[in-house]
C-alpha cells in the first residue's frame, strides 16, 4: 500500500476494555499493526478511521516504551467514535500518524512530576505518566490528581488503584456520592486544597478546556512558573498535517505544532481553544 500522509495503515484490535458505561461511555482499545506501523512519542496523536464513517484524531495513551501495541481510550460521542465502540477484538481499524510534538520528558529528569487529569483528559497524559513510572529512578516524586463527574465516569479504575501503591493519587468527583471517601469537588479546587509544591516540580494537565484554564490559574496561585506547567490541547482536526486549517491556535496548528504546550508557550498565543 502506498505510503503517504492521508493513507491509513490497518491495525487489528487485540483488546477492548469498557471503562465507562452509559451516555458518556468510554472504551480502551489496544491495537497492533497488520503490516508495518509506526512508533510514537508520548503526547502524540493518531488519526483513527472506520471506512464509511470517517476519521477521528485520538491521543495515543500507551507509553512510547510499550512496543507491543498502541492504546487509545475513546469516549463515544459522534459518528466515528460510535462505530469504533461497536468494534470487537479481531476487527481492523485504520490508523495514520503519529501526529504532533511530544512531552519534553527528557528535560524533566530529576524533577517531581504532578499529573492532573479530568475525565477522558487522563488519556492524553497517561502515556507520559506510564513512561515516568516505568523509569521512576529518573524522576523525583510522582503524583496524580484525577477527577471526573461521578465515580463511574473514571477511566483506568483498576490501574488507578494499583497506582496508589506507587505514588500519591488524589481522586475527586464533582458531587457527593454514597461510599466515596476521596475528595468531592472540581479538580482545580482540589489542587488549591492539597497545595502541591512548585519546588523542582513540573505539572502536566489535560481535561476539558474549562478545567485546564482553572488548573493553570490555580497552579500559578501556588507559585508554579509558566515553564513548569504543561498541557496538551485538543481541537477539531481533519488532516493532521497542518493543511486543512481548522485546529489552529493563532499561527500554530495544534496537529503539527502542538498538541503539547508549556503555559509559557500557550499564554503567548491567542486564547482561543
Amino acid at each position: 500500500m502506498p505510503d503517504h500522509p492521508y493513507m491509513p495503515k490497518l491495525a487489528r484490535i487485540v483488546e477492548v476494555k469498557q471503562e465507562v458505561e452509559g451516555a458518556r461511555a468510554i472504551k480502551t482499545f489496544r491495537v497492533q499493526f497488520v503490516d508495518d506501523g509506526f512508533t510514537h512519542q508520548c503526547g502524540q496523536c493518531a488519526m483513527l478511521s472506520v471506512l464509511g464513517k470517517g476519521e477521528s484524531m485520538i491521543s495515543i495513551s500507551s507509553s512510547s516504551l510499550e512496543k507491543e501495541y498502541l492504546q487509545f481510550s475513546i469516549m463515544r460521542v459522534g459518528r466515528v467514535t460510535t462505530a469504533i465502540h461497536e468494534m470487537q477484538e479481531g476487527d481492523l481499524l485504520g490508523v495514520r500518524g503519529p501526529y504532533g510534538n511530544q512531552f519534553p520528558i527528557e528535560k524533566w529528569k530529576g524533577k517531581n512530576l504532578i499529573f492532573i487529569g479530568g475525565g477522558i483528559g487522563l488519556a492524553p497524559i497517561w502515556s507520559v505518566l506510564q513512561t515516568a513510572r516505568m523509569q521512576q529512578k529518573n524522576y523525583g516524586d510522582l503524583s496524580l490528581f484525577y477527577g471526573s463527574r461521578t465515580s463511574s465516569d473514571m477511566v483506568y479504575k483498576e490501574e488507578l488503584q494499583k497506582l496508589k501503591q506507587e505514588m500519591t493519587v488524589q481522586l475527586s468527583i464533582d458531587v457527593e456520592e454514597p461510599g466515596w471517601d476521596d475528595y468531592v469537588g472540581f479538580v482545580p479546587v482540589n489542587i488549591l486544597d492539597k497545595k502541591p509544591s512548585p519546588k523542582n516540580a513540573i505539572a502536566i494537565t489535560c481535561g476539558p478546556p474549562i478545567m485546564i484554564k482553572f488548573v493553570i490559574k490555580n497552579l500559578e496561585a501556588l507559585g508554579f512558573k509558566d515553564d513548569q506547567i504543561f498541557t496538551t490541547v485538543e481541537n477539531k482536526m481533519k488532516c493532521g498535517i497542518g493543511k486543512c486549517g481548522r485546529c489552529n491556535i493563532g499561527l500554530h496548528y495544534v496537529c503539527k505544532d502542538g498538541p503539547v504546550y508549556s503555559w509559557a508557550e500557550l499564554k503567548n498565543l491567542p486564547q482561543e481553544y
Binding site: Y6, S49, L51, G52, K53, G54, E55, K238, C239, K243, C244, G245, R246
Partner: peptide, 27 residues
C-alpha cells in the same frame, strides 16, 4: 483559501462501499 474537510461518502446501503473525499471547507 485552502481549508478543507475530509469525509466518507458511502455509495450503497448494504456492504460498505464508498469514497473518502476531500472537499473545500470554510472557517
Amino acid at each position: 483559501c485552502h481549508c478543507f474537510d475530509i469525509s466518507d461518502e458511502v455509495k450503497n446501503a448494504g456492504a460498505v462501499q464508498g469514497e473518502r473525499v476531500r472537499t473545500w471547507d470554510t472557517c
